[in-house]
Each structure stands twice: as C-alpha cells, then as structure tokens.
Design a protein around this nucleic acid. Structure first.
Lengths: 219, 219, 219, 219
DNA sequence: GATGAATGAGGGTTCATTCAT
DNA sequence: AATGAATGAACCCTCATTCAT
C-alpha cells in the first residue's frame, strides 16, 4: 500500500550488486521497524527482488540481520580508524575519532540504529556481534586516555592515572558518546562537533584534577 | 518449551494481586525477548493464569507493555527521589541519587531493560513514555550540576559555569549513567558503588577546570 | 467504551421484570449486530445485570435468541390479530391487518429485524421459528383473499378464483409486505398507510381481471 | 466435523483458477452459515488450499465477502440482462426478465442467499453493495412497468398510470420477486415458471383496473 | 539468475460459559 | 437473588520459509 517500491532496476545484475541492494534495504527497514517487526517480504520488495532470491543469497532472516550488523560495524570502525592519525598526540586522536564517530552515525542513522538499538535488544547471537565491536572501541579509547594521561602527567611531573580510573574514564566516554549519538540521530538537537567538544571538555579537561590525585568520596 | 512454569498458586485471587503477577511476568519476559518476540501466551503462563484473564485485566499487548513501562518508570523515579535529601549539598545529592539509581537498576534489571532498551526500540507510543521519564531526570540532574557549580564557584570566587556547559555535563552524566547501568546489568563487571564513584570523579572532580574556564579546542 | 450503560436500576427485582429487561436488551442488540456478532457480555451490560444472571435465567445464547424470536413473533401476531374484526368484510380485514402489520413493524423495528433478517439468516433452529409464524400469516391472508374473491365473484356472478391463484396472490402479498416493511424501517421513505394502500391497490383492485379469468401467458 | 473436503485436485494452479475456487467455496459457506459464523479455515479447506493462500489472494475476510457479493451481483445482473431483448414489448421483456431471474436464483441458491440474506444482514459495507444492485433492478423494472402501462393505455384510449403507482407496482414486483425467490430456493415448493407467471398475473393483468382509475380506499 | 505458487506454525484477540461465594 | 473470577476453544491474520519451474 504505502510502501515505497524501488523501481525494479533491470534484471540480471551481478551478485555483489544485488546483495548490496538487499543489505541496504534490510538495514533501513530493520532500523525503523525492529528485527521482529520487519518482514522478509518488505525487504525483498524494497530491494526490488523476489523473496526466494533474498533467501538464495542470504539464507535466513537471522543471517541477513547478522550480515547487516557486521557490515555496519565494519563501516563504523573503518570510518573512525581512517580518521585517526596514530602519529598525532592522544588528544588530537581522540578528537578526530570522536568527530569521525559522530559524523558517521549522523550520516548513517539507520546503520547506527541497527548497531546501537536493534542488535542489542534482540538477544544472542546479535548482541554478541555488537559487543565485540564495542570491546574494540573501548580498548582503543582506553589506550588513548592512558596515553593522554601519560603525556599530561609527564609534562606536569605528576603521577600517572591508575588503570582503574583510566578504564572508568574510557567507559564513561564511550557510554556518553553512544548516548549522545543516539540522541543526535533521534532528535537532531546537537551538531557533531558540539557533541565531540562536550566530550573533550569533560574527558580531557577533567583529567587534570584526577591526575593531581583529586577524588570525590562520600562522607 | 523450556519455559519455567510458575506453579499455579491457588486460583481465585483478588484482581489487584493477579494484576501485579501479570505485570511481573510481563516485565520479565518483555525485558528478555523484546516486545514483538514476547507472546501473551508466555506471559499468561508465567503469571499462572490463562490468556483471556490477561486480556480481561490489561486489554491488549500494547496496553500491557505501556503499563509495564509506567510501573517501572514510577518505581525507578521513586527509588531515586526517596534516596535524595534536598537539604544536602548538591554533590551529596548527586552521589545519593546515582547510588540509588545504580542500586535500583541492579536490583531490577528487567525493569531497567524494559525502560532503557525495549521501550525505546519499539517506537511510539512506548518511546514517549520513557522520554518523559528521562526528561524529568535530566532536569533534576541539571539542577544539581548547576547548584554544584554554584557552590564550588562561590567558594573559589570563580565565575559560574555557562548554562551550555551545565547542560552538556548533565547530558553526559545521564547518558553515561544509563550506559553504565546497562553495562552493569548485562555484564555484571562493575559494582553499583564503583559505577557511582566513577561518575562522581568525572563529573564532580572534573568540574574544577571547567569552572576555571579551561576548554579543549582543536588545533 | 462507547457502549451505553443502563444505570443499574436497583438490585433485587422480581424475576419477570429482570427477564424482560434482558430480552429487551437482547432484541435490540441482536437486531443491530446480528446473532454472531452479539456478545452475551454486551447484553448483560445493557440489561444492567451480570453475565451469570443472564445464564441463570435464559440458559444459553441460543435459547436467549430463541426466546427473543418467540416473544417478537407473538407480539407481531397479537398486534395484527387484535386489529382485525372477523365480522368485517374481507377487504376491510385485509386493510386493517396490513395497517396493523406496518404499524407494528414501524414501532418495533428491532423486533422486526430479529424476525425478518436475523433469525432467517442464521439457520436452524432459528429459521424454523420464523417459518412457523410466516405459515400462520400466509394461511390467514390466504383465507382473506379467498373470501374477498368469493364476495366479489358472488356479487358479479363470476366463477371463483382457482386455489392456485389465491395462493399466488397471498404469497405475493405477504412477500411484498415483508419487503416493504424492511424497506420502511431501513429507509423510512414510505409511511405505514402508503405501504398498506399500495398493497391493497395491487391485491384488491387487481383481483378483478383475475376473477374474470384474464391471465397473462407467454407467446 | 461433517465438513466435506474437496479432494485437493493437484497443486500449483494459476492464480485465476485458484481465486475462482476460493470464491466458489466462500459463496457456498457464507450462504449457509452467515458471515460471522463462517471461518476462513473452512473456506480454505473447501477450496482445497491453505488459509494463507486465501489471504494472499483475497486479503481479508471482509474483502473476500465483498468479492463474493460483487461476483454474484454481476452474475445475476448479466443473467437477467442477457435474457431480455429490448426490442420486445414491455410485457415480454418483463416475462423474460422474471423467468431469467427465477432461473438464475434457482440455479445459484447460494449466490442468491449471499445477496438477499447475508449481505443485507451484516451492515456496511456489504449492504451498500447489494443496495446498488437492487437500485439498478428497480429502475429497470420501473421502466418496464411504465412502458407496459403506456402501451396498454394507448391501446385502450385510457389515461396513463401516475408515476406514484408505477413506482408502487415496481416496488411490489421486486419485493415479491425477491421474496418468492428466497422461498423457492429454501422450500423448493414452486417452479421458476410458476413464480414468474404468478407475478405476471398480478402485475400485468392487475394493471388494467389501475389504468382505468380504480383504487381501493378504506371507508 | 530469478520467480510465482504455496504452506506450517504461531500470535493477538474474543467469546460463550462456569465456578465459588 | 446475584456476582467477581476464571478459562477452553476458536478465529483472523502474518510470517519465515520452500518447491517447481
């Protein structure tokens, strides 16, 4: 009825192209409806092919969803990594990475929704796929925070930050970044650079007192 | 299949009791399977009643899910609010609130999953219910951060924090807290107090340099 | 939701009164929704009693519907019969009967709908109940037509009408009357007297040529 | 139960054929059970297909019922129209039309039941479909009666019949015809030609006195 | 390389009916 | 005299998936 039909653009396309069309359609629909509410019928229709062809290429709904998750995870990781020059100082790397992250999620809201919302809400095996991605990112950010702390500390002759605190800052950074990205794509109220700047101010500027050993403790 | 059956504990209970049982069952199953993948049958079974009774009391799957969201939202808000003494200084309030938040989500992981994951993933009208809760919390946290900045600034004769930064810190706090809570309940790798302490260190301790006007800027 | 609830007018009423309320409610709802689409719930609600009470008094949906049919059939028959004075000439009796019939169906459209539409569309045992009523009426009308023909024929020294033609005229009369009654209650386009007059003109006035032996035959 | 199963005659048939089978089955069952009491399951079974296929081709119970009504209405209209030669005099046309009508309803009792009983009993949108058919037929019959009166009147130098009476006769004719058809198919007590002849005698032969201005009036 | 035809299985919802009080 | 609590059974509809061509 109201479904937008992609005009079936010429039959007989090479497999790689067809597959891409199917994944594009799938990501879009999974992102907007959720895994269970998405029907293979609708994906096939939007991809401009028949249902059996979707099965021929992607085997099952579960494998199709997994393929979507993998493709989007790789794309996101590639976007962030290619934006970061490992030769730069840690804070510049962090800035570049955050900017690339927010830019990518803003440009691919459906992909981000699949990763951040849909995959995590529908249990195994999908959640595991995303967990792996997240672990990679957390590890990378942890390295950056450690290096940043090291540089800053070295400059000011201060003791390095304890691993626990490094990990804590990294977790907060990643968690807040995810949250901001979702908020950005859903409400459009913040720009990519604003989001990145907010995080840099908290993470980087806030590192100073932590490096000097300040801690908050209940009393 | 493998579903655990609650031994039907005696027929003929007053409506209020039955309704509670149904909501308990529903929250648990919605949290684990997601809205669409949850069947009314399974909820009824777990609640120890027949499906028609669930419909008699809760009308429809959608209303049932909404009732779950509302109950869990109210419970979470009540837990946090009753933990906070408005007479205390802002940092103590923040600590108390965060601790209560993490304690509640740790004790009610299914409720938290319904609020944080499921409700937000399945569109309107569910997302709206949770958005209202989140707005309440963000407003409250913003107030605390502003007050905290005010106290700290006043003590040190420093200019107060700009509203933009207050809002940024609040957003990061709430986003990071949500993210940590989910991570906590999903992986069990951090304790409630650790989570709260990490956030206090970043938010509270890191407030210092921000108050002194330090900002990170790319160049 | 939108259902009109009769304010439960005082508990503890004599059985006969309660039963009447239930039948009233049932006729009304059966007439408007049809047998299958009517729920015992709605009847009970409209009657201002609980469902078990409906069962206590009327045993089952089927018996309840049958009771409605019988009550309405008896009422219709009584209305027609009490309007007819057997001492009058046949044409006056026919006129009185038709007028009473149209008046009754106009005043009790739900009852007429139950008899004419609902009961006949839902198979046995309901159709049989109405068939009995119809047979009674057809027999009565046949008698009137025969008598009318006799009077007219006797006056003009003409041969009486053959039984086949008498029966034919009676069938047409009854069929047309039913049809007009339904049309009247559904569209409201004709008055009771107009309907009766139309039928008298066809049946009575048209009797003349038939009595003189005129017939239409294909050639 | 007692359901007759059509031996599944070979799988894989072209859509048009299957659709016809489904409509055949549906008309039969709707006619006998009524709309609400008919289950899609039973229709599918009788059509020799699975339930989903019925939905694939006919979308919903409501659309299926509507499709039945339309098909039967068109078939009935076509049968009557093709039997009538507009070049013939009005009485011959009427006779041909009535004969065709009774013949068609006798040969397709289920179709007639769907049109006359079921569709009208189950409210909109079904009743509207049949009302359109009836209007067409009433208009056609009105034309015939008018023409017949004109011919007859012209021959005898008499004044034409008033429009009100023409309409009255047409309504009575159509109503009586419907009623006789239902009675015929339900009881089998009259033949098609007898039914048509009865109506011709009343309508055609009875037209004479009406043309001469005779009217019945109460007094 | 691609599809029209077809289905098993399951989910949301409703309803007539009963039991215990 | 009357009801709140409860359910077995069915029904409409959808969907992931396959077969035959």
């Amino acid at each position: 009825m109201g479904a937008v039909k992609s005009a079936r653009t010429g039959r007989r396309m090479p497999r790689a192209v067809r597959e891409r069309q199917m994944l594009d359609a799938a990501v879009r629909i999974f992102a907007r409806r959720g895994y269970r509410a998405t029907s293979m019928e609708e994906i096939a229709e939007r991809a401009g092919v028949s249902k059996p062809l979707v099965y021929l290429y992607l085997n099952s709904k579960e494998e199709l969803f997994t393929a979507c998750i993998r493709r989007e995870a790789e794309a996101l990781l590639a976007a962030v990594q290619s934006a970061v020059d490992p030769a730069l100082p840690a804070d510049r790397q962090l800035w570049a990475g955050l900017t690339a992250f927010f830019a990518h999620t803003a440009r691919h809201p459906d992909g981000w929704s699949v990763l951040h919302r849909q995959a995590r809400t529908h249990g195994e095996p999908f959640a595991g796929e995303v967990a792996a991605l997240r672990d990679t990112i957390v590890a990378y950010v942890t390295g950056l925070v450690r290096a940043a702390a090291h540089e800053a500390g070295a400059a000011r002759q201060e003791p390095e930050l304890a691993e626990r605190d490094v990990a804590g800052v990294a977790q907060v950074l990643v968690g807040a970044a995810e949250s901001l990205a979702a908020w950005m794509t859903e409400t459009g109220r913040v720009s990519e650079r604003e989001a990145a700047a907010t995080l840099m101010n908290v993470a980087w500027v806030g590192l100073g007192p932590l490096l000097r050993g300040e801690r908050w403790a209940p009393r």
